[in-house]
Design a protein around this nucleic acid. Structure first.
Length: 739
DNA sequence: CTGGGTGCAGTTTTT
DNA sequence: CTGCACCCAG
């Protein structure tokens, strides 16, 4: 099948939808590196999927053959986006095979498609990479626990003067450089975790840190200790997973994987979606994979939609992709540049608004902020009509504003402008239901009789079954609550909340209460001893008793309890240093015979487990289906809405200024030790980077809207004139919504 | 509409 | 402690 035949099959003449010449150019890309600059709603994922299909099914490729599925890597940043590409490829494949049954021989199960993390994990195991055998991959909580156990109590990490250099890693109320003591052990563990992840994601040279001496040398020593502990304990974190893969690519085995030989065909094409969220480590992986000529690597992204700096994402990788190719690739590669500027999603006024917005800020014109000479977006959707597609909704204060928003959405539904509440969406920086965040909106909406769908409200631990199980465990292991730490207050409050939740449940379920009382009695008779059972077994037993057993029949409650169990599992599986085969899950009773566990153990239990739950917050259960259930109005974070679209989009939190965060400061500090100096970026100052991050975040929010975009702000928000509202407010519509 | 005093609350995102 | 939101006086 030729490319022309493929396109004719999928988009027959006269069909309502066909590819534009710009899109076709990407699908027909022949060889070498390609840089696809895709604006919002430009069909970038579609184009990338079609390119993959062309490579797999068409025989008019550069070398006149179809690409073997295992020679093609298709990857992106989030699970959701990866599934999206996978679904599209499979759906089109069925159409192709229906028309040409002989193409059923193309085995898509061998296609390497997924997030980079999952590909690294799968490929390292498939290739039996020696540096990644029998390794347990740690999630964020396990990693922090691991650092707590193995690094944070090192005398080097207890030096106050060390932390004075990194004071920005601590919340103001946690620790300040003026204190005459070091930050708490748990705070140190979290700060070290941040630094270690950055070192790996940003390709920081640890030898250069050693050579610098002083505090940098201390950090380098602590990092080495962490890396060594992971080796001996057979653990790996997310960042090191990718580093292991990069190391593997440099070995002889890895070279066979890349370039073929011994029955393998090698990797010939690398397609990357959401490239604006790539970091330096990932960049090096992609370009190492594509190193050999003709280096067919296709990256697709929008530098204006970069959202993930906190995770090491460097928009500079997208902005300077041409320079990266010259650094890493063999020969002198020509980078083909494909702008996709046609927007198929939004009303022309919204498209114009978004273009004006992104160009209104002087910061976006600084070198390095955006891809040079990027063309403006062009409206190309079927949505039209001469109505006010972009408007402002304001109020004197947040409650007044929320009431008007709720009333407006109610009116949209009552007048059948939308047929279901899930055709509208409220986008906020944070959907936590606290007074500063989503609470006023959610309260006003519920008062107006609108059901709200807000799964990312961090309310997980507030759910009855979760707090009751935590409370039951606390009551079993610490019957009088004697070991509850008074500080930090948030942790103590959470523990007491959970115990109160258990008390309520215990009254109605004598079986549960009796089991716990019996267990306390047994512990009392065996002071100072290790207990036969581990904490996991106690939890499974508790789950077999009512009300937990009955709650397992409710699908949502069962998922919540499952999630809590896996958090316990992470907690319990952390090895205790210098004690072979002893884990946090092993229990030892108190010397005094009080029925409680060993006091030190309990402090860890409270500080680590409850501390984690109270500080980080765990999101409540989310539906697998994207978008809100029928009849419910979604309240979402902007990150969550990435890649989605809604007819009516309401955007709030227009007062969020660009705050310099720990990420920005760590990024600056570590950039003095580049592993690859030729890829060290000339970045704008921190304040400008922070401002650009906010501008981009709200660009994502605004470009979600199909039919109408409504900006929500109090008069004070709108007057403050900070991004995302200012400083040049010419782009703001001068007409408020009538109400 | 703006500036200042008072009072309250206390990041967010993912693998 | 700081920084914001809100309210009120001009």
């Amino acid at each position: 099948m030729t490319t022309d035949e493929l396109l004719q099959l999928l988009f027959p003449t006269g069909a309502p939808y066909s590819l534009t010449p710009d899109q076709q150019a990407v699908v027909r890309h022949r060889r070498g590196p390609a840089w696809v600059l895709a604006g919002p709603g430009s069909g970038k994922t579609e184009v990338l999927s079609l390119l993959a299909l062309r490579l797999l099914f068409c025989d008019d490729n550069d070398d006149g053959h179809r690409i073997a599925p295992e020679s093609l890597i298709v990857t992106t940043f989030t699970e959701k986006a990866a599934r999206n590409i996978d679904d599209r490829i499979r759906r089109y494949r069925d159409q192709i095979v229906a028309a040409q049954p002989d193409l059923a021989a193309v085995d898509l199960s061998r296609l390497r498609i997924g997030t980079l993390h999952s590909l690294c994990n799968d490929l390292l195991q498939e290739c039996r990479a020696p540096n990644y055998q029998n390794v347990r991959l740690m999630d964020e909580f396990e990693q922090a626990m691991f650092v707590y156990e193995h690094v944070s109590s090192d005398p080097l990490a207890e030096r106050r003067d060390l932390w004075a250099t990194f004071s920005y890693l601590f919340a103001r109320h946690e620790w300040q450089p003026t204190y005459n003591y070091a930050p708490s052990r748990w705070n140190r563990a979290e700060a070290l975790t941040d630094i270690f992840n950055r070192i790996v994601d940003d390709r920081v040279s640890v030898p250069a840190m050693h050579a610098r001496g002083g505090n940098w040398q201390l950090i380098a020593q602590l990092y080495d200790k962490y890396a060594a502990a992971m080796q001996t304990e057979f653990r790996c974190d997310f960042a090191h997973l990718q580093l292991r893969f990069l190391e593997f690519l440099g070995t002889p085995l890895g070279q066979v994987f890349r370039e073929g030989g011994g029955g393998h065909s090698g990797i010939t094409w690398v397609l990357v979606d959401e490239y604006q969220d790539t970091n330096l480590l990932q960049e090096e992986i992609y370009l190492t994979l594509a190193h050999a000529e003709p280096s067919s690597i296709v990256v697709v992204g929008d530098d204006d939609q970069a959202l993930y700096r906190f995770r090491g994402g460097s928009v500079e990788c997208m902005v300077t992709f041409d320079a990266a190719c010259r650094t890493y690739l063999a020969g002198t590669p020509t980078v083909s540049r494909y702008p996709l500027v046609d927007n198929f999603r939004s009303h022309p006024k919204i498209v114009e608004f978004c273009s004006n917005y992104i160009e209104a800020f002087p910061a976006t014109r600084l070198p390095g902020a955006r891809v040079p000479n990027k063309p403006r977006l062009r409206a190309h959707s079927s949505i039209s009509g001469n109505y006010q597609a972009v408007g402002v909704l304001s109020g004197t204060n947040i409650n007044h504003l929320s009431t008007r928003v709720a009333q407006t959405i109610r009116d949209l539904r009552d007048h059948d402008i939308i047929h279901d509440y899930n055709q509208a969406c409220i986008l906020l920086a944070s959907t936590r239901e606290s007074p500063q965040n989503a609470l006023p909106y959610v309260t006003a909406l519920r008062a107006a009789g609108i059901d709200v769908y807000n799964p990312r409200n961090k309310a997980f631990v507030q759910q009855e079954e979760v707090s009751a199980l935590l409370g039951a465990l606390s009551s079993l292991l610490d019957p009088n609550g004697a070991s509850i730490p008074p500080r930090p207050p948030g942790v103590a409050a959470l523990i007491n909340e959970c115990r109160a939740a258990y008390d309520v449940v215990a009254v109605q379920h004598p079986g549960l209460r009796q089991y716990i009382e019996r267990a306390v009695g047994i512990f009392r008779q065996r002071p100072g001893q290790y207990v036969e059972s581990r904490i996991q077994e106690i939890i499974y037993y508790l789950l077999s008793l009512d009300p937990f057993a009955a709650w397992q029949n409710d699908p949502i409650r069962r998922i919540r309890l499952g999630r809590l169990t896996s958090i316990f599992e992470a907690f319990a599986s952390t090895p205790v240093p210098n004690r072979p085969n002893v884990f946090r899950g092993n229990l030892r009773t108190d010397e005094g015979g009080s029925g409680a566990m060993n006091n030190l153990w309990l402090l860890g239990f409270y500080h680590l487990l409850f501390g984690y739950l109270s500080r980080v917050g765990v999101d409540d259960v989310e539906e697998e289906v994207v978008g809100a259930p029928p009849g419910m109005l979604p309240v979402m974070t902007i990150h969550q809405a990435k890649g989605l679209e809604f007819p009516f989009v309401f955007v709030g939190h227009l007062n969020r200024a660009g705050q310099i965060s720990a990420s920005h400061q760590l990024e600056t500090a570590l950039s003095q030790f580049p592993t690859r100096p030729e890829r060290a970026f000339q970045r704008p100052p921190e304040q400008t980077r922070a401002e650009l991050d906010v501008i981009r975040q709200y660009f994502v929010a605004y470009s979600r809207a199909q039919n109408a975009l409504i900006l929500m702000g109090t008069t004070a928000h709108l007057r403050a004139g900070r991004p995302p509202c200012g400083p040049n407010r010419q782009w703001l519509p001068n007409q408020a919504l009538p109400l």
